[in-house]
Amino acid sequence: MANLYKYGFAELHVAFATEDGYETPISLPNGLSLTLDPEGSSQAVYGDDSKIAEINTNNGYTGSVNADVFPDDFLCEAQGWYKDSKGKYVEVADGKPRHFAMAYRIQGDEKNRRTWCYDCMLDRPSKTANGVQDNVEPDTDTLNLTVVPKYFPDIDKKVVSSWCYEGDQEYADFYKTVVLPAAETPTTPTE
């Protein structure tokens, strides 16, 4: 049975891109939320005084990911910053951000869904801090995120993301390595 509703956001993982694939995924604890807004356009095509087609472009997503605190080592790796010989983290003005794949889980009423987004980059994080008043309200970290299509030559397609559900073939080992898209399943014509 298919999910009737979904909720929750957990199991955030990233795997930094290399020249020939991805590094081993790492877990980023305490993810709170993810927002991804579609990037692209839709254009109507007209002929004979009526709409005859719709052309759509999928340029991925822009959005944000929120957590209690993102680890400093992850931010340094993602932004091209470093930890110096005296143990300080150093924000480099001309740091070279790294591309990475991002995985996460969304819960459903019937089956949980795990997703990989294949080409992600982060903007520099905003920094906020609030004084303590009558109630302690923890501050959280929000990172602006861009997800763009990535070309996979073995299937000759640009892919933004892929996902599977609990019980599917790749679900159990989903975070051990980046689960790459495979070729389409051939369809059998109906008679």
Rank of each mutant, 00 (worst) to 15 (best):
Q169K: 15
A182E: 15
R98T: 04
I26Y: 00
I55V: 15
D72C: 00
K96M: 05
P138Y: 05
G47W: 04
A93P: 01
T188D: 10
D109A: 05
N144V: 01
T140V: 15
K6L: 03
K83C: 11
D119V: 01
C164D: 05
C117A: 12
G108H: 03
A183K: 15
L12S: 04
Q79M: 15
M121L: 08
L4V: 06
E77H: 05
P25G: 10
E91A: 15
V132M: 05
S41Q: 10
P181T: 07
E91T: 13
E39F: 00
K176C: 10
A129T: 14
N30D: 13
L143M: 12
F174Q: 06
Q107S: 14
K51D: 02
G87K: 04
E137C: 03
T62N: 11
Y175T: 14
G87F: 03
N112F: 09
A78K: 04
Q107K: 10
E23N: 05
L12I: 06
E170A: 10
A129Y: 02
D37C: 02
G167V: 07
V132L: 12
D73C: 00
D141S: 12
A10M: 07
Y175H: 11
E137H: 08
D49N: 15
Y118W: 04
V179Y: 00
V90F: 05
Y165F: 14
Y5E: 07
L36F: 04
S27C: 08
V65E: 08
G31D: 04
D119K: 14
G131F: 01
N135Q: 13
E184Q: 12
A101L: 08
V69P: 02
D119N: 13
L12A: 08
V147C: 07
D73F: 00
D68C: 09
K157A: 15
T24Q: 13
K150I: 01
S161E: 10
H99R: 08
D73H: 00
E191S: 12
T140W: 00
V148M: 08
A15M: 06
N59L: 13
M1F: 03
A183P: 06
